[in-house]
Amino acid sequence: MENYGEYFKALRESKQLTLREVEKATYVSNAYLSQLESGKIKQPSPLTLHKLASFYGVSYEVLMEKVGYPVPQKEERLAKSGAAAYRIGEITEDEEVELLNYLKFIRSRKK
């Protein structure tokens, strides 16, 4: 993904979390998270990605793939997880970010 930072920001915002709240839960500094979201971190460590995947409730493999690490058997993994992308077909990275933004909007109305 060219600018995966937008994806990480959309994930965080879809859960209505601040950088400090993510830091507190994952022990990844908010400065690092900010740099990750702005695209300044070129290749985040797999350990950091694992922490964020667990916290955000997304697949570790998806985050690995987003930042450019090789991940085998993408289609099989999507089918097993019941992921929305598998059910609705392939979506672009921009569409995925927009879907996360829409989810943020929906969740904000529930409060």
Rank of each mutant, 00 (worst) to 15 (best):
R12T: 01
R77G: 01
E37A: 07
L36V: 03
Y102I: 15
E76G: 09
V71Q: 05
T18L: 03
V62D: 09
E96K: 13
A79I: 07
E23C: 03
S34I: 01
E96Y: 10
E75Q: 06
L52P: 00
P46E: 15
E96I: 08
E75R: 01
A31E: 14
L63P: 01
H50N: 07
S14H: 06
L78N: 03
K9P: 10
L47H: 06
L19K: 06
S38P: 03
A85M: 13
E93R: 11
L47W: 04
V62P: 02
Q35Y: 07
R20M: 08
A31Y: 02
A83L: 00
Y27M: 14
K15L: 14
T48F: 01
T18Q: 04
I106G: 01
S59Q: 08
L17A: 11
Y86A: 10
L47D: 15
P70G: 14
E93W: 10
Y27D: 15
V97P: 04
L17Y: 07
G39C: 07
A83V: 00
Y32G: 06
A85W: 06
E2N: 13
S54L: 11
L99W: 04
P44H: 10
L78I: 01
S54R: 12
K9M: 12
E6A: 11
E95A: 11
F8T: 02
S45P: 00
Y27T: 12
E90Q: 12
L100E: 03
E75P: 00
E37I: 00
P72T: 14
A53T: 04
D94K: 05
N101L: 11
R109S: 13
Q73S: 15
S45G: 04
K110D: 15
E76T: 09
K80F: 12
Y60L: 05
I91P: 02
P46I: 13
Q16P: 00
E76W: 06
K51E: 08
K42I: 10
Y102H: 05
G68Q: 05
E23H: 09
R109Q: 15
Y56R: 03
Y27R: 14
E61T: 03
S38N: 12
E65V: 00
Q35D: 11
K110H: 13
T48D: 10
K51H: 09
G68R: 03
Y69H: 08
S29E: 11
K110G: 13
E21H: 06
Q16Y: 13
S34N: 11
I88Y: 10
L47P: 02
E37D: 03
R77L: 15
K80P: 02
V97D: 02
E2Q: 14
D94I: 09
K80N: 12
L33A: 09
S45R: 11
V22D: 08
Q35E: 15
R109T: 14
F105S: 07
V62M: 09
Q73N: 15
K80C: 08
G68W: 06
L33N: 01
V22L: 09
N30S: 14
K110S: 14
Y7D: 01
L33K: 02
A84Q: 15
K42N: 14
E95M: 13
Y56A: 01
I41G: 06
L100N: 01
E95Y: 03
K9Q: 15
I41P: 03
E76Y: 07
E2L: 12
S54P: 00
S45D: 05
E61G: 04
P72M: 09
R20V: 06
R20G: 07
K111W: 05
L47I: 13
G82E: 12
